[in-house]
Amino acid sequence: MKNGFSVFLAAFIALGLSWCGFVLGPAKQLGAEKQAAVLNSSDVYPIQRTGDAALGLQVYRANGCAACHTEQVRQDGVVCDVVLMKPGKNPAVVSNLVSTLKLTGLTKDEADAASDQITAAGGSVETHIIPVGTDIARGWGLRQSVAADFLYDTPVQLGSLRAGPDLANVGARLPDFNWQLVHLYAPSAVAKNSAMPPFRYLFELRKIGDTPSPDAVQFPEGFAPPAGCEVVPTPEAKQLAAYLLSLKADAPLYEAPFTPVTTKP
């Protein structure tokens, strides 16, 4: 490196390469992404947030919720279960097959082989796809998070630390609006020993006037405000809770397939 220009050139090449890879590439590839089709359905995913939920994302951003919460479910892979739907014309053989064959926790190929055997015997089967992984076992999501989940978010609040639980699917996990408000006002009221700071500044503690506010938060026993007072959420609190309820990554997609469980076995 004899002169300033060669240093400039070196830096230009090195940074230019990674810029093409990690900025230009994704901006072209992901920036043009459109709504995806939900598997086995005519629906599209995701639906853009509206109203309070859309405003709530900005409350989430302003208060730095992503400092402690991720919105990103990880998955180790999928397993397949073969489920017998109808025994068909030859129930004895089929039930014999079902009891001898391994039908749960299979790979795709094993599942195909098993379902071929049963179908050949006259039974009709369905193959269920079940994502596995720690986050899914914790009940944080039905499948891994994929690019489509964040299509309409600005800013995308992926988060990088789990000082609190993942929120990718919190709207499906904890769908009670009042629960969310109680949790924001006094986390320890609903989650014992919670490390989350209470967000009391998003609420107003006030004397009950002539008529109690219809919005007032309903507390569990032992956590109610002093007699004659009520806790009323500010618009920000309501928006934040609406946003949390709108966090539902529950659509099976081509890149993240799973079989929605309708009834528990």
Binding site: V23, L30, F150, L151, L158
Partner: peptide, 10 residues
């Protein structure tokens, strides 16, 4: 801004 997770990549 760019859309979706491209934001995160950047």
């Amino acid at each position: 801004p760019v859309r979706g997770v491209a934001q995160m990549a950047i």
